[in-house]
Design a protein around this nucleic acid. Structure first.
Lengths: 287, 287
DNA sequence: CGGAAGATTGATAACTCTCAAAAATAGTGG
DNA sequence: CCACTATTTTTGAGAGTTATCAATCTTCCG
């Protein structure tokens, strides 16, 4: 039972045009997601229902006051359709976003219309944490799937960081992990073959999704990332992504269809990729 | 054949065996480097002679007291020969290093004896700034050339950060730039051809060296990075690095010999690489 | 001078890209 | 609910880039 079901509009059974009325969507009483409706749950006890609280809380205990504040900040969620930009390169920004639902990515566009995806942002993640940034952003952030976000003014966030050391620590930790992931990606791109790269990405994505409770009972996860995005992530052509995926399917390591990924043999996939989840700093290891 | 033997002593024209008497070297009156002798310049007014002070100072004004403290911390430099490890993956550490001289790099070893270089550390840079790290390090740091470092206990650094907001800001800024460089490298590896990657790296290295005043009067910079290290940086084979370098020489964009790099045509090199120095957050642009 | 590390060369093979087109799937509007 | 269009996935063929292997040459340094 999931908040983010992975599909663009289809699974949510609502159309989500670029400029729909956001508040209506976010606050509507019959919001068609199957998950908890954040707008109606305000109890502190319900901490794990809030992706931001859940995520920060995994880095260490948060004070009750801190949890309250975080809850308060994430009340007014706004829907965002796939393709919607959250931040644009070269612009300046006065706020950060918390992703509540869906998948977003950092990316840069290059001459020739190429795109390089620099990282994935999952529910509960803060972006762009480089709020400290004085200059213009050096990359864009956009939604890869439909989802929902909350904006937080930079000033407000800075207050929060100053007032709650537990939050500050969690955010700092989160930034370190981001960096760790970047290094891992670097290594992937530089040293591994196309199929190894793809396997590694799938392993990482699986572990991250599992960590935030998006693993379904049947062992699958929502996976609304199309082959073009995979190509832009892994520095390979769409054609080659396609063929590599087919090879993985043929060797019965994964099933990927209808925007859901089912890893049939984690061990083999991880071995193939040389994947060691340590860099994600998550307690439990891949089985 | 192990891949990481590092450069032999050369720039410094001294032999630097693994376990030489460090203090003798660092404090010797006739230290054979061409640069300023940090050990004998203790005046606060002489701020730019201290690589750490110089580097942090470029991010914003440092209070006189902060400069004093930084100076004090960087008195006891220790020589480090090429190949010397500063931090080892999986170990825990209770200190950071400031590089005063030479070039160091972050790297990870992979199965099969391969090495991936994850970043370069130049004089004035702090490593590993991930001192906050609770867990073991996820990568190693080692000297690529002979040089000198100063160790700072983590506790001491934390005190400093707490006591001097100007230092804290500079260190945070520095961490952000690190991340920015990582993203740029990612993009390089994923999207550019071997020759573009190489050009891009040379541009970046040139700008960084210039920024810390290592540009010689003749327009060259010290470049003690061998082709094996370049290969491990750019994810290509040594053979291909060699051939690509030759092509660059043939097209009269660079002269690279005797461990010195002379870029003859910056504009063309930058254009070839798609290099835009903005991500380094340095005032002056490449000419 | 001798040994070792680094740079260079040649030949071959492997991997991945590009182009072009067809098939399948998802989303839209009647 | 169905037809229609756009997007995404899949397939085939050929070309290009880069890796690998093995040997030689060069430079450095004791």
């Amino acid at each position: 039972m999931l908040r983010y079901t992975g599909a663009s509009a289809c699974e949510l059974a609502v159309t989500a045009p670029e400029e729909m009325s956001l508040s209506a969507y976010a606050l509507g009483p019959d919001r068609p997601t199957s998950g908890p409706d954040f707008a109606t749950k305000r109890e502190v006890s319900d901490t794990m229902a809030n992706p931001l609280v859940a995520r920060l809380g995994r880095f260490g205990p948060l004070s009750a006051q801190a949890v309250l504040e975080l809850h308060h900040l994430t009340q007014k969620s706004q829907a965002r359709a796939a393709g919607h930009p959250l931040f644009l390169e070269d612009s300046r920004c006065d706020h950060v976003c918390v992703l509540l639902e869906g998948v977003a990515c950092r990316y840069r566009m290059l001459s020739g219309g190429r795109r390089q995806i620099l990282g994935y942002i999952l529910p509960g993640d803060l972006c762009d944490v480089e709020f400290v940034t004085v200059g213009p952003l050096d990359h864009s952030v956009g939604m890869l799937t439909d989802g929902a976000v909350v904006k937080i003014a930079s000033g407000k966030l800075l207050e929060l960081l100053a007032a709650f050391p537990c939050i500050r620590r969690a955010v700092e930790m989160s930034a370190l992990i981001d960096k760790s992931i970047l290094r891992q990606w670097l290594l992937n791109l530089a040293q591994r073959s196309a199929s190894e790269r793809l396997c590694h990405f799938l392993c990482e994505f699986l572990v991250r999704m599992e960590h935030i409770d998006y693993l379904n009972a049947d062992g699958s996860i929502p996976f609304a990332i199309n082959q073009m995005a995979l190509a832009d992530t892994l520095g390979m052509s769409v054609v080659h992504v396609n063929r590599t995926l087919q090879a993985l399917r043929a060797s019965e390591m994964i099933v990927l269809r209808k925007r859901h990924l089912h890893v049939l043999d984690r061990k083999r996939l991880a071995a193939m990729a040389g994947f060691d989840p340590g860099y994600l700093r998550i307690r439990e290891n891949i089985r």
